[in-house]
Design a protein around this nucleic acid. Sequence first.
DNA 1: CACGATTATATGTCTAGACATATAAGTCAA
DNA 2: TTGACTTATATGTCTAGACATATAATCGTG
Lengths: 243, 243
Amino acid sequence: MSLATDKLDDKPTLYKQIRRDIESRILTGEWPPGHRIPFEHQLMARYRCSRMTVNKALSELAQADLIERRRRAGTFVRRPQHLSAVLKIADIRAEITALGRSYGYQLVQCTRRAASATDRARLGVRKTGKVIAITCRHSADNVPFALEDRLIDLEAVPEAASADFAAEPPGSWLLHHVPWTEAEHTISAVVADDRTADALGIAVGAPCLVIDRYTWRSARTLTAVRLLYPGESHRLVARFKGG
Amino acid sequence: MSLATDKLDDKPTLYKQIRRDIESRILTGEWPPGHRIPFEHQLMARYRCSRMTVNKALSELAQADLIERRRRAGTFVRRPQHLSAVLKIADIRAEITALGRSYGYQLVQCTRRAASATDRARLGVRKTGKVIAITCRHSADNVPFALEDRLIDLEAVPEAASADFAAEPPGSWLLHHVPWTEAEHTISAVVADDRTADALGIAVGAPCLVIDRYTWRSARTLTAVRLLYPGESHRLVARFKGG
DNA sequence: CACGATTATATGTCTAGACATATAAGTCAA
DNA sequence: TTGACTTATATGTCTAGACATATAATCGTG
């Protein structure tokens, strides 16, 4: 699962910018599966570079299975490749709409506070600063899909103070407004406590799949999020080809 | 995480041959982790090609995290990465030893029987044939690591009849004796039932991470396996870099 | 010896071409 | 209509250069 490769604090190079631009359009759903990406010669013109530079960006996206390239036909956005896609997508809205289901969002709670000891541990910061704590729920076809519990470091992401998380899911907002250099996902399992069970409409003690995601920009934690999926219903699927 | 390798029937191109040669030396252990692979200019000379061709091969291997490239220092074989290991490796023994822990294996049950309706559904076959059902436990440093529940279709894998699953874990045996063309992993969460709790030494009702893996050879299911990992202890970690 | 400055070198990116090749689309005949 | 043939075109691979940049090694100095 080699996902992307390069730190953002690298000197941005042209091919990485091209790759990023395209990847971002795909991951946000702006270019849905099946969409044909501009031809290499069009990208050459847009970015005023040689074909090899465009080709390098597209080749890497193809190697990551984000796009499919067909001679004479062009380059197309692939359907999400299961696990890697699920793990890559930082945006549940895109995940749900990619499944062809209707997306719903409810903000449960959003508070701004000085970082508690727990918050600081979670974000890996020492200094006490302000944080935003968000709890919200994502649903697919009006059925609860995932419960999100997020902490945003306001020192690292001051712009978040002015975002309206009642209108836009924090994942989407961050993806569009905040560049990051590194992310880590951890998958585990827990049983639902009262609050989780209530929010997801499942029984207390029912299994939940957990994805913890930490996002950094140059060694500084921007946000920590825990996503809880009803364990029996939601599945991460990865399909491989052997040799 | 592109596990998908290039088709064998591709016209072999030079950069692919270079990539394959190097990959093969790494995977066979001929070039162990830390080994410095030849410099680009040496590979240029060996393959009589331009640097861009060598560079393309090496870049792809680097994107796949098989090698690490450092300016001025050279290119080095990387240690196997964790998530890709978990998802790629069809063999828990390799997974545990890759973590530097001691591997233990206990066969709990191994029966050979005519496929029940449940078995047939799980394997996706219609005809009633013989199957082998295996339950076994893997441990790391003498602590239960995973419980395995496997079904092997004896029609599709007749050689399995003569394997000794008391001596060798079925995953290892299959990996070494049976070629496959496709595999699918599904990750979900459940709570431990009596039997699972007992086998893994955890409480009934404790969360477990589940990996279901199906393996096919040309549309024919060879084996279906469910792996249960104690949910709090075992974690699948994926780390990404942004661009 | 310790440490800062310099240098050599391997990789990183990029160009402006070239020819190869798969294939969608168009053409034409049965 | 259908099948066979042709053509146009987008991607696939490759070259022989160029300059940039990080850093291991070396050198020099206190």
